[in-house]
Simulated assay, not measured.
Amino acid sequence: MATLATVRPARDLSKEQGVTGLRAALNILDKWQASSEQACRILRISRSTYTRARQRDPAWSVGLDTDQLQRISMVLNIHAALRLLFDNPDNVYGFPAMANHNAFFNGRAPLEIMAQGDMISLYETYRRIDALRGAQW
């Protein structure tokens, strides 16, 4: 009989999968013109983790917690929503850095809101962008 401590939820990812997701999220953030400081705040990672992930060492590994994995997922989902909204790569990658005058953003860029570092700002940014496409998956 498995004890609670030995049961692993299906949503858990391997370290390799976490690193792959982290690198994908960092590539997207780079294309969104996020600074290293913004990327670290959005993903809640240290500067050393950021630097090591960018080096592409195939042997490097890092343990990511549930919050960090959720943040990676949110960045990937925002990117997916933008790809559905826009055909032009300049818009897909430029939109997060553009000033937005909708009520939630109040003239700030989505990237600026996400870089506040809290999960609510990241999630609410995703919700607003996702709503632009009418939530039509």
Rank of each mutant, 00 (worst) to 15 (best):
V92M: 02
A109R: 03
H79V: 01
M119D: 11
I129A: 00
R23E: 12
R127M: 06
D67I: 11
Q136H: 15
W60F: 14
N102A: 15
D12F: 12
R56Y: 09
S46G: 10
T3L: 14
L132Q: 12
M119V: 07
A25D: 01
R11T: 15
A10N: 11
T20L: 10
S121D: 15
S35G: 10
S121K: 08
Q136P: 01
A39I: 00
G134D: 09
A131N: 08
N77E: 11
D118E: 08
P96L: 01
A99W: 02
I28G: 03
A99T: 10
A81H: 01
L13V: 12
R128P: 00
L43P: 00
G94Y: 03
G117D: 07
A131F: 09
L13T: 10
G21T: 04
A115C: 03
I120W: 09
K31P: 03
M98D: 13
Y123L: 07
A109H: 02
L69F: 03
F86V: 08
G63C: 13
R41F: 08
Y50E: 08
E112V: 06
S35M: 04
R47N: 08
N102V: 09
Q70G: 13
L111F: 06
T125A: 00
M98R: 15
L76C: 07
D65L: 06
S73I: 06
N102E: 15
L82K: 01
A135G: 10
A99C: 09
I45C: 03
D65T: 07
